[in-house]
Write a protein that binds this DNA or RNA. Sequence first.
RNA 1: GGUCCCAUCGUCUAAUGGUUAGGACGCCACGCUUUCAAUGUGGCAACCGGGGUUCGACUCCCCGUGGGACCGCCA
Length: 477
Amino acid sequence: MALKSKEIRVRMAPSPTGLLHFGNARTALFNYLFTKHSGGKLILRIEDTDIERSDKAFEKDIIDNLKWLGIIWDEGPFLQSERTSIYIKYLDKLVKDGLAYYCFCTQEELEGKKQEQMSRGVPAKYNGKCHNLSEEEIKKYLSQGKPSVIRFKIPEKKVSFNDIIRGKIEFESSLLGDFVIAKDLSTPLYNFALVVDDFEMKISHVIRGEDHIPNTPKQILLQEALNLPQPKYGHLPLILGPDKSKLSKRHGTQSIAEYRKQGYLAESVINFMAFLGWNPGTEKEIFSMDSLIKEFSLEKVQKSGAIFNIQRLDYLNGFYIRQKSIDELTELCQPYLPASPAGGPKIDKQKLQQIIAMHKERLKKLSEIKELTDFFFKQPQYSKELLRWKKADDEQIKQSLDILEKLLFKIKRWDKAEIENVLMVEAEQTGDRGILLWPFRVALSGKKASAGPFEIAEALGKEETLIRIKQAKELIL
RNA sequence: GGUCCCAUCGUCUAAUGGUUAGGACGCCACGCUUUCAAUGUGGCAACCGGGGUUCGACUCCCCGUGGGACCGCCA
């Protein structure tokens, strides 16, 4: 049965049994892009039928991070746990119609069967043992309180659907086995609740991970039994770990929250995720959410899985950081910096912006700002050897520091251009600028790699700069 | 084991029967530079294999092979 309405209605249906991770988030993004591109409505549905594993904290994490990413829905969030009365009607009908039945098999019994089937090389599926139970037997077992579940009676037929991304996919339903659709009359399970909800919410397109392909025939059969329309399906390729298996916890933390905490920008994560399985067909690689919406189409989605490549995310994040204004970037870096300098020079807002500005293009993620700029907030600690430029001896280093001290002391207008002017004249005369400039930079930063010494000196201020030169001299003695 | 899905540089990918197989990340070299970045230039690097179809296959078909997903009273 085809959907009557032309309206495009799409759902994101995460289950709150874990944090929002790259897999979920990418699926959510593609749902969002598809919906917005086609002017449809996006519905957020929380699939929390499993009360054991569902957690409000996860639900909150998913919602918060979806918002942070800029993936905004039009309706919901709807919680399946609050919709049981709706499912019950449909479940009831199915049982009354004889299309679903009680099963009293124990889990041990079932597990043994499955192992046996697999070792025999036949499809692992339920054998339909309880399908032939009589009314009396069922009543008896039920009144005895014997544990039971409700299974859907699979009709034997070919089930096929036309996947938007993959084309025709066909299954033989006899290989499926009667699956469990509810624990009891008031506790529906995933496959059942989903089919009812997709109908109730008038979902036109189901866009989800490839791992759901095997669920699709089950859901189609359920739709047919309930006489419900069939939405269109599109199965996205999986995001893979370095070992090419489905991305999961064993590949390390993949939660969006964790990346966010490390200082990845939402725009980088979005741009990155979009290209995991999709590309515009042009050589353009930098996309904002708006331009993604404009150019996205499911037809251009890849069929094969994409390995999660952190280096690319880092590159993108560095790129987006460099696009930020100093104002904005300073704001973003603030949480990663010490609240107040411990023993170092006073740092006001303008100074802070100066410091951020000189590290802008060295940043791959915001959290790195701490390590990069720590010497502004406290006296640097370093070994004497670090002051040595190439094969300079102690005497040479001392001489350089003396010259620096003398020249810097005389500077009236303390800004980086003036400092550079004064020092470069001297540095050029030595024939190797490093003789003067390397110890200068190390004395100020205590690092073997840092931003340029002139801008550091300017930000540090004349007094602090001279203090640090003196400290370097003490080290060399 | 069964079912299903997939297959271009290390990675993400372009190519829709005719290209020196293109771009990006990463890597290497060089330039700029006191260092590290950023940046510029250049380089290395791929059509899984075998059969067809065709004047011509990365592109279409078949068979292998390889990888993956699923086979829950999870979603």
